[in-house]
Write a protein that binds this DNA or RNA. Structure first.
Lengths: 127, 127
DNA sequence: TTAACATATGAACAGATGTTCATGCATTGA
DNA sequence: TCAATGCATGAACATCTGTTCATATGTTAA
């Protein structure tokens, strides 16, 4: 009985349908919240058309801000802001030469993630 | 001279530093905007901690809304709203049984994308 | 049928996000 | 040194997003 009381105290708001074994096991095996938060932050970078287009352009070659601005048909400021986010997330890196800043991809995972995403949406379209 | 005028008309706001060869080539090889938009929509689903946690839980096993609600420590409504988004993006699928709705992953790409993301952030941390 | 329950969903709200505008900083060439 | 150029960045603004609340839908058991 004391045991029951403890369960009630610990599992506040427990719904009646909960499969306790499943819930406990899944909870234990989940990566910690910090990791998942960081992961979400990474994927957030892929979750905007402008940034995806920037990455996609950089798959081909290193480019300066001005080139990217022209390729995307967007203002230099907008591109620059997005590049800052991509830099912060270690997705792109800069190389400065004279007045220009040349951006390129920092890591081959980026393209792999991109390609898996493409596969997924293509299967979806076929289905 | 007429040629110069046309160039000015077509390439409005052209910056002076643009590397025209590079820009033209990259532009040609870029996937179309629709595809990149759809791709961004997909990755948007990975770009939220709640949804990442849901996917992560479903890697282990099929779960009902109520279980997920308990695992995440979040309200049923919030979870249900997110599941709807994941359903719409063909990331999860539902199986209904009695009063419950059991969710599971729709496609193995999802876990692969997740794992590549993990690799990326782990390399980042090591560096 | 009715009550209880699991889930879904619309509305409302707060907070996050992306672009533009204005401006600052560094580099280059005159 | 000064003007022009390429890039970065803060502020402002509109839009998008995620959660909560209230409520609806559909299923089950009594």
């Amino acid at each position: 009985m004391r045991n029951d009381i403890n369960i009630e105290i610990n599992d506040v708001c427990e719904e009646q349908c909960v499969h306790n074994d499943a819930v406990t096991e899944v909870k234990e095996k989940m990566p910690n919240l910090d990791t998942l938060f960081t992961l979400a932050e990474l994927f957030k970078m892929f979750g905007d058309t402008t940034r995806i287009r920037i990455m996609c352009a950089l798959f081909q070659r290193e480019l300066c801000v001005c080139d990217l601005s022209e390729i995307l048909g967007m203002g230099q400021s907008a591109v620059s802001h997005q590049l800052r986010l991509l830099r912060t997330s270690s997705i792109v890196k800069v190389r400065r030469e004279g007045k220009s800043a040349y951006y390129s991809l920092d890591d081959e995972h980026i393209q792999k993630i991109f390609e898996l995403g493409l596969e997924h949406i293509n299967e979806e379209r076929r289905a």
